Computed example of a mutant assay.
Amino acid sequence: MNQDSPMTTRWWWIRHAPVNSTGGRIYGAGDPLADVSDIESFRGLAGLLPRDAVWVTTHLQRTHQTMAAIGEAGYPLPEAGTQGIEIDLGEQSFGDLQGRPRHEVFATVEFQRHRFWLTAPEVAPPGGESFEDLLGRVTPVVERLTHDYARRDVICVAHGGTIRAALAHALEIPAAKALHFQIDNLSVTRIDHHPAEENWPDPAWQVVMVNRHPK
């Protein structure tokens, strides 16, 4: 399959700018400010991303800040307020763990952890949700937007957990395996969707790049 086929829908996932305002506390689905001072990375993103794309963010302000900073670095953003905002693409909620110091939580045996994530994929912290729950809400949004914006470029500024969930869906791998992906702040992950065609009766996802740094 030619990844540049005119039938392809291309998702450009960007993890938001880093959060340095929480003093090392877990923020998960919270809404702290991001640090958008890395001008070089934003210029790299502005040069890498395709023009005439559909833009999507989550409801959390760090994704809006990141999108705005890419625009300030030279990318011609769509008219203000016209990007899609998808609550169900927000980060995993860690419930009662949010606001607690990371080192304190990591030192406890309160719950089962994953080596590369705060909790095991099936574990929901008190008052929160599991990574499997996150996957369950991200997948329908990805499928819906892929249908709505077929054959377009979709740029989505989201979160580390969200992007791992999108990879799990595309690759049809267990949630626990998706947590092995490293997704850095301001990195780009591209996942293409190829529809069914005459010689290919089933649609297919193709992972083109993961965790690409823009500078």
Rank of each mutant, 00 (worst) to 15 (best):
G90R: 07
L134R: 02
R152G: 02
I87M: 09
G128D: 06
F106S: 14
H114E: 00
V105I: 15
R113P: 12
L89K: 07
E104A: 14
D88I: 03
E129P: 07
G99M: 04
Y149P: 05
R144L: 12
D148I: 13
L135W: 06
H159V: 08
D133A: 12
V157W: 06
T146H: 13
V138K: 05
D96K: 02
G128E: 04
C156K: 07
I87H: 05
E122C: 04
W117I: 10
G99N: 00
D133S: 11
G90H: 04
F106R: 14
G136W: 05
L134F: 01
F116L: 10
R115V: 03
G90D: 02
P101R: 05
I87A: 14
I155N: 02
H147F: 08
A120F: 12
H103S: 15
T119C: 14
F116H: 15
R115T: 03
Y149A: 05
L134M: 12
A124G: 06
H159M: 06
V141F: 08
T139S: 14
G128S: 10
G128L: 05
E132V: 12
E91W: 10
V109G: 15
S130R: 10
R115A: 15
D88N: 11
L134P: 08
L134D: 07
D153H: 15
V142N: 01
H147S: 14
Q92H: 08
F131L: 06
W117Y: 11
Q92G: 09
R152P: 12
L135M: 14
R151A: 15
F111P: 11
